[in-house]
Design a protein around this nucleic acid. Sequence first.
DNA 1: CCGACGATAGTT
DNA 2: ACTATCGTCGGT
Length: 205
Amino acid sequence: MQLKKTFFNRDATILAKALLGKIIRVKHKSTWLAAQIIETEAYYLDDKGSHASLGFTEKRKALFMPAGTIYMYYARGGDSLNVSAKGEGNAVLIKSAYPYFDKISPETNLVIMQQLNPPKNGGASRPTHKLCNGQTLLCRALGLKVPHWDAKQFDANLFYLDDVGYKPQKILQAKRLGIPIGRDEHLEYRFVDAAFADVCTKKIK
DNA sequence: CCGACGATAGTT
DNA sequence: ACTATCGTCGGT
């Protein structure tokens, strides 16, 4: 069932872990595209690497809106998906997912997702485990665009996060300090469902 | 060594 | 809203 508004009203780190295993469902023409979240990252207002730390602007307003608001931004050729968490300026970045199929989202969707996210240099289709592997790639494979969803709320008819009862048995955490971003450093809280550790964006140390 | 991807600054 | 671009990671 769709995650309720209250689900998101938690500390960003807690929320980031809670989102692992949840299903992203996006209405695409007559079908529902779906992918399971396998990797997330928490960002805080005080985090020098967060967009929120750069201050409130029209583009970043979603980060300051109530928990559960969608925040999308465009960078380096792709869209990225985030959800605001408890406390203004705090959010979770959805870093990676894995194509998901069930009654609502048939396996025939794989072809559609491959078409939405074609390989860089022509060639064959992306392998399934690479289709949503990366924050911008998953948006591409699911057809999520900034102008459509930034600062919006989830919609049971078009785009929402779904709890199918799956919980990661083990969560890997990369809590790394000293990642240079500009001249400053920032805290990174990255979480990976251990069951998908071999297909997440970066290997966890 | 080479290809792919990415919490930005800058431009229309 | 969209685009460019270079450092880092991962695979061969």
